[in-house]
């Protein structure tokens, strides 16, 4: 049996192919077709989504009642969930469609705060007209967040809830935002980075204070194609300068601080505070940043390249903010 040779080839996902060769002679070929996959092929060849039951509530109370039953999956814009279902990475049994819950779709300014409903779309945010030029980080979503249909469909709450390397958690973090999560019995408030929703929770509102004088925010994304790419590095910056041009306050986030985890750059912020944005300070700050982050490599970019681009984007964003504050 020493020269039994089993060839196992994966062609995409299915069908899989198995060939058994003994002493150089082909004994048998197997093709495996997944019934699950073939079931999803309809007459005109369109692959269907896995089966699920759908609920279409029209108020937040109805949503909370449904969530309290357990086993529910929330569907907001669908730009994440539907591709995940297509790839077999999510197979919900009960889906709660939030498109009818119009009470969660708003953006308001009240008593020095912006209030954003969890179902507000990215396009609502970019085009609501409430944000002046200081909210550059929000405006730049219009350039860097997917393409037009993505911005039309994707929601603020959905982007926060999906976790990982997303644009809105990073931007909302530098804006000092808090996220309100509600469930049938109570509510809680959390930061926008690394949100973990319990099965019966929904993001109802995002709140952040209006920016003060001599402040600016910026967001930038390095991607490997001109548009609609997956960000290799994304950086969000909030900067407040004093009258003398020194850094009064600063908040920085990157998509990969440790491994694949997005986060704040507290040490780099500390190194920047009270200093001036001159070449000497910045080169010292970049050394601090170099020590502070350890991004994971993957097929898009190596750790060292990500580190380099992280520094470039942070410096550029800081300078962009400073230039516009001084203007």
């Amino acid at each position: 049996m020493s020269d039994v040779n089993i060839t196992y080839v994966f062609v995409a996902d299915w069908p899989a192919y198995l060939r058994i060769v003994v002493a150089g002679r082909v004994q048998r070929d197997y093709f495996f077709f997944s019934k699950l996959i073939t079931d999803r092929l309809t007459a005109n060849g369109v692959r269907e989504l896995p089966d699920f039951s759908i609920f279409t509530p029209e108020s937040l109370d109805e949503v909370l009642d449904l969530l309290a039953r357990g086993g529910m999956t929330l569907l907001a814009g669908g730009t994440d969930l539907i591709p995940m279902m297509k790839r077999g990475k999510a197979s919900p049994v009960y889906v709660v469609d939030l498109s009818g819950v119009s009470s969660l779709r708003y953006i308001r300014r009240e008593k020095g705060y912006f209030l954003i409903g969890g179902r507000a779309t990215v396009k609502d945010l970019v085009e609501c007209g409430l944000f002046d030029e200081r909210y550059g980080a929000i405006k730049l979503l219009g350039r860097y967040f997917g393409v037009e249909p993505t911005r039309v469909m994707a929601t603020v709450g959905g982007n926060l809830a999906s976790g990982g390397e997303r644009d809105l958690p990073q931007i909302l973090e530098v804006l000092g935002a808090r996220v309100k999560l509600v469930r049938k019995e109570g509510s809680r408030v959390a930061g926008p980075l690394g949100l973990q929703l319990a099965g019966d929770e929904i993001i109802s509102e995002i709140v952040f204070p209006e920016l003060g004088v001599r402040t600016y925010t910026w967001f930038s994304k390095f991607e490997k194609r001109a548009a609609n790419g997956i960000g290799v590095v994304t950086a969000a910056v909030y900067l407040k300068l004093g009258e003398d041009g020194s850094v009064d306050d600063v908040r920085l986030t990157l998509n990969r601080v440790r491994g694949r985890t997005p986060g704040r750059l507290y040490k780099t912020e500390k190194a920047l505070r009270d200093g001036r944005l001159d070449d000497d300070t910045l080169s010292h700050v970049m050394e601090v940043l170099d020590d502070e982050i350890s991004p994971a490599s993957d097929f898009r970019a190596s750790a060292s390249f990500r580190k380099h681009i992280s520094k470039v984007l942070v410096v550029r964003s800081l300078m962009e903010c400073a230039r516009r504050i001084m203007a």
Binding site: T56, G77, G78, I82, D97, P149
Partner: peptide, 20 residues
């Protein structure tokens, strides 16, 4: 791509019930 209430939408990412 189709227009839903005048907005540009990927019809492969929207459920039919969401277009009610």
């Amino acid at each position: 791509n189709v227009l839903v209430n005048g907005e540009l939408v990927n019809s492969c990412l929207m459920l039919a019930v969401q277009a009610r």
